[in-house]
Design a protein around this nucleic acid. Sequence first.
DNA 1: GCGCAATCATACTA
DNA 2: CTAGTATGATTGCG
Length: 525
Amino acid sequence: MDNSTPIEATPLRTIKPHPTIIPSPIFDSGIIEAERESGNQDLVDSVLMRFDAVRRRLLQINYAKDVVIPASTICKNQGIKTNTKKRIGEVPGVQVGDIFYNWSEMYLVGLHLQTMAGIDYLRVENGVVGSPVSTSVVTSGHYNDKTEDVNSLIYTGHGGKDKNGQPRDQKLERGNLALVESNKIGNEVRVIRGKEDPDDKNKKIYIYDGLYFVSELWKEKGNTGCEEFKFGLMRKQGQPEGFEIWKSAENLWKHGLSNSRKGFILEDLSYGKEAIPVTLVNEVDENDKSTPPGFEYVISENNSNPMLDCVCVQRNEGKLPYHNNILVCRKPMVYECDFSCKNRVLQSGLKIQMEVFKTSNCGWGLRSWKPIRAGTFICEFSGVNKKKEEVEEDDDYLFDSSRIYNRFKWNYEPELLGEDAWKPVSEVFNLQSQVLISAKDSGNVGRFLNHSCSPNVFWQPTKCGINSESHVRIGFFAMKHIPPLTELTYDYGVSSVEKIGEDERLFKGKKNCLCGSMKCRGSFG
DNA sequence: GCGCAATCATACTA
DNA sequence: CTAGTATGATTGCG
């Protein structure tokens, strides 16, 4: 007999329920019902941007340990979502190769409309109730799936546990039944590949890999000795690369590269000036080993004014501008410390493994080996500070803050969090004087960022140190999540604009634009 | 209403 | 050190 005194089990961890957030009752998402059912590229971008902005803000105000669920609940309830109608095949505005940092993002743009289950399916189409048909599957590596091949995968059905968590045979129901039906009728099934985040082993990144067909199915005994369903999926031909790009990038960051790489030119274009090397490759013309001409690689020097007291919080209106080195909001000016505190992002230099690569028609470009989360610091625009009269006419490597830039919204909407809507953080730069930096003769990787009218990077004016006289530096940050080996681009702006109608404006840059985006203005610079 | 699910972020364990 | 696990709140669906 066990007659020892029973010991009260002490909980290992207590989680407080989320405090209630009451969004403003008059909040209007601006998304009309039809758009909510079926979206487009702009809506998908905007929904993802708004969700992540709320998520970052909740982190910044130390709202709760888990902020993904609260942020997505707010967006769901306030109508910040699109493609809510379940569909077979592609989702408008979601591209093969797009990456997601959690399931909520996939939910909000209609890619995978399940909160937890890995198989999504629809039962009713055009008002007719039929057999469930699968629409999308998410791989997560929990089921010993074979998921490394880029054109096929073996997916294990779900279920297989009783209510006590004990293993049992999987049943032919729900998602399993839907995948069997998809095998029968041969419909397209979206595949999302969950992979470990290379920068955080505890987290996953989800890569949309396009459309697949359920080509075969069978049953077999799994590790537990219980029956499992197995589904063989084959990738539809003729789609852009998705997971394949991820895999080649993974090769780079896991095994370094080396000289055996196609089009390899230089191990480190910075010649040791950056903390991590900047690779130089030319895959367009493998025999051309020439390097970018006529410039010296330099990084900006940090002015060293030791501080007595850290005043970062006060100078940044009560909150630190970065959370885990990710910018929370764009601001007229971000202030960083000199030495003593952690509030140093721009000053800490290049953190992402970059490569300068030859583009097909825009000269050299810049891209990252690893995926980049929205808000991540990319690099500074280093070069020589100039006065207006010092600028050379033919300077193609000039940063000019006085150009006209497309406005865009990136920050969170205070009304969503019940904050005062009349004092949102301004996203409009209010520079006291024009910032002109030339990277023509000397610069860092920032000089290799090309222009795009649909950019994935934006710039943020920053002052470092207590000296308010210190000059304005320009930091580049990721506007959205950027898949690995995707070219990084920002809006160069245009030097003049002509009004040609009531609402029509003609942008007149000095150069013809080749960005190829739907929203191309035709010129830049 | 109940039960389930290939979640999420984190503390703890080995 | 890190890889693995346990944890409780959570939500759409049948």
